[in-house]
């Protein structure tokens, strides 16, 4: 029996997204939209067509995951002192080289402190985490959200009645309600491809193997090996996110290797499935309901 309740011979499948090799090409976003026929539609918090608007956030023009964005590449530009950059001067190019906004290499420029500052680029392809304890699935009143034989979490479009409860329940802000359609949509981990032995569209399209699809146990081992490799190479800020089966959501089916704190990438630092506290919530509601009965009896039985 797995932690999600399945007792089938099918191994749990998932994603390991190694952001240290992401080049920000957005092939995953495009492949996802193409395969799943996801409309352009609304960006998060705006009425603008996602991907067709310049958001002024580096090269990120989709903003975040939503009903119409199931893979989202984040672009983070950080000022770092050139001296602190881990990159060895591979090629000591002339200081007058054209700045293309690429990760800086080479010797720091002389004199000006401002000129000495470099920019570090972080790129990361975000996706639904397919939680072990998935709040969206727990709170769905119709059973439209279900857990597949691959231990992924999928919305059945023909069942969803658009109640919208899954949207605020997700601790990562992944699932969204599609304007004009009314129902909730999110990443299916390409449920329709897995059964045919194919990889999800995004993993297939990724040119650097930043997105790796496979059996979750194997991915976890691979991710830990990669983290160690990076630490040995001096990249001590590399850390895994969502790989721990003991975290607040029981571990993610889609987890990450990050190079900074999760919140820098727009991820919650310590997400907890809201239904963990549900028994305590029902107890408080029952106590309050008992209080209503007591207040009614006391008020009505009292003397006129």
């Amino acid at each position: 029996m797995t932690s999600t309740g399945y007792s089938s011979p099918q191994a749990r499948m998932g994603f390991f997204t190694d952001t240290s090799v992401c080049i920000g090409c957005k092939a995953c976003e495009v492949a996802c939209k193409e395969w799943n026929a996801v409309p352009a539609g609304d960006g998060p918090g705006t009425d603008a067509a996602a991907g067709m608007d310049l958001l002024g956030m580096s090269y990120d023009n989709t903003g975040g995951l939503d009903a119409n964005t199931w893979r989202h590449v984040a672009f983070i530009e950080q000022h770092v002192p050139a001296a602190a950059e881990p990159s060895a001067p591979v090629q000591a190019g002339p200081a007058t080289a054209e700045d293309l906004g690429m990760p800086t290499v080479g010797a720091p420029r002389q004199g000006d402190a401002q000129e000495n500052a470099g920019v570090r680029w972080l790129m990361s392809s975000d996706v639904c985490k397919h939680c072990t304890h998935a709040a969206c699935l727990d709170v769905c009143p119709t059973g439209a959200l279900f857990r597949t034989e691959f231990d992924t979490v999928v919305v059945q479009e023909d069942i969803c009645n658009g109640c919208g409860y899954c949207v605020p329940a997700c601790p990562y802000g992944v699932i969204g309600k599609r304007e004009g359609d009314g129902r909730a949509f999110k990443c299916t981990l390409c449920y329709d491809r897995l059964g045919s032995g194919l990889q999800p569209a995004c993993a297939t399209a990724c040119p650097t193997e930043s997105i790796q699809y496979g059996e979750l146990d194997e991915l976890r081992a691979r991710a830990e090996a990669r983290r160690r490799e990076l630490h040995d190479a001096g990249v001590t800020e590399a850390r895994l996110y969502g790989e721990d089966p003991d975290d607040g959501v029981g571990g993610d089916g889609a987890f990450f290797l990050l190079l900074d704190e999760p919140e820098v990438y727009g991820l919650p630092p310590d997400p907890v499935v809201t239904t963990r506290d549900l028994p305590a919530m029902w107890r408080m509601a029952a106590l309050s309901a008992a209080g209503v009965v007591a207040a009614l009896v006391g008020s009505l039985l009292g003397r006129r």
């Binding site: 998060p44 949207v167 919140e263 820098v264 919650p268």
Partner: peptide, 17 residues
């Protein structure tokens, strides 16, 4: 340039739908 405590100040969880 993004700060250390959020991604461009964008929300993390979704507004109730």
């Amino acid at each position: 340039v993004t700060t250390n405590d959020s991604y461009y100040g964008l929300p993390i969880v979704k507004e109730p739908a």
